[in-house]
Design a protein around this nucleic acid. Sequence first.
DNA 1: CGTTGTGAATCCCTTCACAGCT
DNA 2: AGCTGTGAAGGGATTCACAACG
Lengths: 249, 249
Amino acid sequence: MPAIEDGPSVPAARERARAIPEAAVARLAVYLRVLSAMSEQGVSSVSSEELSAAAGVNSAKLRKDLSYIGSYGTRGVGYEVGVLVDQIERTLGLTRKHSVAVVGIGNLGHALANYGGFPGRGFPVTALFDVDPDLIGIPVGGIPVHHIDDITAVCAEREISIGVIATPPPAAQAVCDRLVQGGVECILNFAPVVLQVPDTVEVRKVDLAVELQVLSFHVARRADQAQVDAMADAREDGDRTGIDGMVVR
Amino acid sequence: MPAIEDGPSVPAARERARAIPEAAVARLAVYLRVLSAMSEQGVSSVSSEELSAAAGVNSAKLRKDLSYIGSYGTRGVGYEVGVLVDQIERTLGLTRKHSVAVVGIGNLGHALANYGGFPGRGFPVTALFDVDPDLIGIPVGGIPVHHIDDITAVCAEREISIGVIATPPPAAQAVCDRLVQGGVECILNFAPVVLQVPDTVEVRKVDLAVELQVLSFHVARRADQAQVDAMADAREDGDRTGIDGMVVR
DNA sequence: CGTTGTGAATCCCTTCACAGCT
DNA sequence: AGCTGTGAAGGGATTCACAACG
């Protein structure tokens, strides 16, 4: 248990960051939202049990996740909300602003541009791009739309760090290439396309079709399971199968 | 209860379905899209190497994923595109239509409603809901908007199986409850809220803030790593005065 | 006491590497 | 000869359960 002091602990904190499991990072963002809401309601202290219930995970997982960023709890008591908010924000790099560019101002792009400052601030949308001449120059959500040919120049100039791709699929890779050339470090991709990027660039994708199809799979699985159950019931009226009652989940 | 008369492997296929890892299911949806595109371009045969490259995974993973749904390849040759498309569609339950309801016709809801039939068809949007009186009755993407008080009745009547929540956070749980009461089996949640549902209902969430914050984390991690590297370099150079004051964001 | 923090066990997923088939 | 299908090994992430501590 390393001392939390300056000096050697700074590199330690840095090295720890690398060691946080990807899955835990996503959950930290959820905890942060719950904690922020609690903070606004004047809650100042919380136990792992309470927080985990509000975040929809079990308490052991929550404590393990929090342990990745340090030991900020008090045994027998719980955590101070304010402390956790600060530490999670620091871990997620939210103390720095990350300028966002949105490319493709269709329905989805409009929705994204109008989020206005983006969720929870810290992610100001500072540039919009499209190909449609009718859109260019017109402000959406207060920001003028530029032509996608200017992506590289504008992103470099405004030090955009996150590019959001909301274009039709065929345009996505070309847009991505320009964003990368303009120096963006991360891309959030809404286009149903597998993007090729240098490994210095982080990509996350949000794929509506995939989400729906995964849900569809679960519907089918449930229906099938119901059928298997029914068959088993019908077939074995004397010999009740073992308790293989399967948790279908 | 559709009687499926398809050879002896039906129960086997059913039991296998339960065994497909969640992560693999999501990737099958990606493979399906790639395969559909290939099919449209007249490609009729593909190797695991080609397909995995197009889908952005390695070939061993692809073969393992495909093995969960059965053995449809030909050793020494590859896979027939059409066969894979059919089998993946069957596994994902895409042979059945899944009616979709969208709740919350703001910017995002508009975008979703206008997807028109939703990605790759099979997911027709058949009902829209909002609270705003100015929206009710007006068609969006060809479908009239109902009041959210009617969610339960309309969903039950039209046999909606998937509910999409695109409301502001405070409304999400109440909307969710009504969808569940109306008999929806699955929910796709865009609201940044942890939903409480009975465990007969499957929920997936798309959380923009989480996505951005995960990206932010990676930016921070890279910056930190770069600095650690720089310090290591400097130290090797005979301890040039450390910039060990760190640029802490 | 009550709650945190964490080694150890477990489970799940990925990767390897090669046997098996065409 | 070439490519698929898959046991086996490896690596992560989750859960357990309890020691440590205010």
